[in-house]
Amino acid sequence: MTDRRLTPFSGRIALDTLRGSVAAEAFVPGTPARIGIPVTDLCPAPGALRDRQLIFGAEVTRIDSRDGWSFVQAMVDGYCGWVSEGALSAPAPATHVISVPATHVYREASIKRGEVARLSLGARLSVLETDAKFARTAEGWIPRQHVRPLDRPAIDPASVAELLLGTPYLWGGNSRDGIDCSGLVQLALRMCAIPAPGDTDLQREAFGDFLPEGTEPRRGDLFFWDGHVAMACNARTLIHANGHTMSTAYEDIRACLTRIAASGEGRFHGIKRPSFDSPQISRG
């Protein structure tokens, strides 16, 4: 069965890559665009409840449009859905990424002259120039210490996840304003240049075999339940965006396993260890 989340077919118009695979009214090459607002919902149908979110600078391919909505495919993970037409802007090559939990975009190179937007960790930017204090973009000025070149990714996904401690839990959320378990894992891995799907079930399929039962968890290991994922900080503690605390929080691994088992909220599948190419990743 075709997974609609990863199928660039609006039900009417499909990408050219699907010729011969689906019955569409038309096939198109799609047009490039990017998300031009801080965060927007990605929905299974125009006006429906979100599946996920896309944040500023996310590259997409626009496939279909109707009634003020556009059907797009996100370049980062292939996820498809409808976004408000007003969320899209012209494509621009990203050079930098927001590397702190959140930042502001200022009208001028001064923190006293007023802000025009708030951007989340992971937002991608086209930086035009920098000085000692600010990075200038087409949208405004951002504190220089809050951005990092895309060619210098982070090296420890757990440290990225820890930047979002206290972030409110939001089902389908993908930003500092609100995030869910799979959004947290995807963002933490992506900031380290490790590709990851957007949903828990897809992540569970993406990272090879489960570790043998009894293997001691290492920093960065992923714990999978039905509908939930968490990341190890060390052999005793994990971090996850969860509905128990309604936040991104630490939890003792044994206590978490016991709590979820007692609640009957989801079967524990086991632990997976994504492939980390960098030898610099801390495994403490």
Rank of each mutant, 00 (worst) to 15 (best):
C256L: 06
L49W: 10
S175R: 02
L49K: 08
T17M: 08
H244V: 12
C192L: 06
D177A: 15
Y250Q: 07
S275A: 13
L15H: 04
D77F: 01
R218I: 04
D151S: 09
R152G: 00
D226F: 01
D131L: 07
L150Q: 09
D16E: 15
I13R: 06
G284P: 12
V160N: 05
L119G: 12
V116G: 05
G172F: 07
G214A: 09
S278Q: 12
D16Q: 14
L42C: 10
T137P: 10
D3N: 15
I253K: 05
L128D: 10
V97Y: 05
G266P: 04
S159E: 15
Y106G: 00
R176A: 14
E251P: 02
R113I: 00
T95L: 14
I253T: 06
V72G: 01
D131T: 01
G284D: 15
P168D: 12
I55G: 05
A94D: 05
T245A: 14
V147Y: 04
T245Q: 13
V76N: 02
G57M: 10
P143Y: 10
E108F: 14
S70F: 01
E108Q: 07
R283T: 02
D156N: 15
E213P: 00
F27T: 03
T248P: 07
S282P: 01
A135S: 14
G86I: 02
G220C: 02
C181K: 11
A102T: 08
E25C: 01
A87F: 05
G178V: 04
R52I: 08
T2P: 15
C192N: 07
N234L: 09
D41Q: 08
P143S: 09
C43Y: 02
E251R: 06
G68W: 08
T130G: 03
R113Y: 04
G86Y: 03
D209H: 06
G198F: 07
M1C: 11
C80V: 10
P274W: 03
D51Y: 11
R136E: 11
G270D: 08
T248V: 15
F134P: 06
E129K: 05
I98N: 09
G173P: 06
S84H: 03
I239Y: 13
F71N: 09
M75Q: 08
T167V: 08
V76H: 04
I55K: 00
K272M: 08
S126N: 15
L164H: 04
F56Y: 15
W82Y: 07
T245M: 12
Q280I: 09
G114I: 12
P217T: 02
E108H: 12
I281A: 14
V72C: 12
R107Y: 06
C43K: 11
Q145N: 07
T103F: 04
P32H: 05
P46Y: 03
T137F: 12
S89Y: 00
V127E: 11
E115Y: 13
D180H: 10
H269E: 09
L170R: 13
S21C: 03
